[in-house]
């Protein structure tokens, strides 16, 4: 399903971490992989204090969903890794 009139679907996640360092590590791990070009999804990450912000934009609902889902799975893995193999100092 495409969105009419060249408009974009967009969503923003704001993920709070216990500390700035953990937010920075999550950013470091999650910002490396680029979105696939053919999916036409743009993903932007940035950190403000202890909060990791992610903004998604896409023209198609399917790729939009896939991109967000996959990001959340990766985020979960990174958080679990930090919880298990921290402590983040």
């Amino acid at each position: 399903m495409s969105i009419a009139g060249g408009e974009c679907l967009s969503a923003q996640l704001n993920v709070p971490f216990p500390s700035v360092r953990e937010a920075d590590i999550a950013y470091g791990s999650l910002s490396v992989d680029k979105e696939l070009k053919r999916g036409n999804v743009s993903r932007e990450l940035w950190v403000e204090n202890n909060i990791l912000h992610v903004r998604f934009q896409a023209s198609e609902a399917r790729t939009f969903r896939v991109s967000i889902n996959s990001f959340l799975e990766h985020l979960k893995l990174v958080c679990e890794t930090m919880a298990e193999f921290g402590p983040a100092r």
Binding site: I25, A26, G28, S29, D33, H74, V78, T81
Partner: peptide, 15 residues
């Protein structure tokens, strides 16, 4: 590949 790399990147930063 990406799932495995994510864990490697995270521990490398932690440690």
């Amino acid at each position: 590949l990406v799932s495995t790399a994510l864990v490697a990147r995270t521990v490398a930063q932690l440690w």
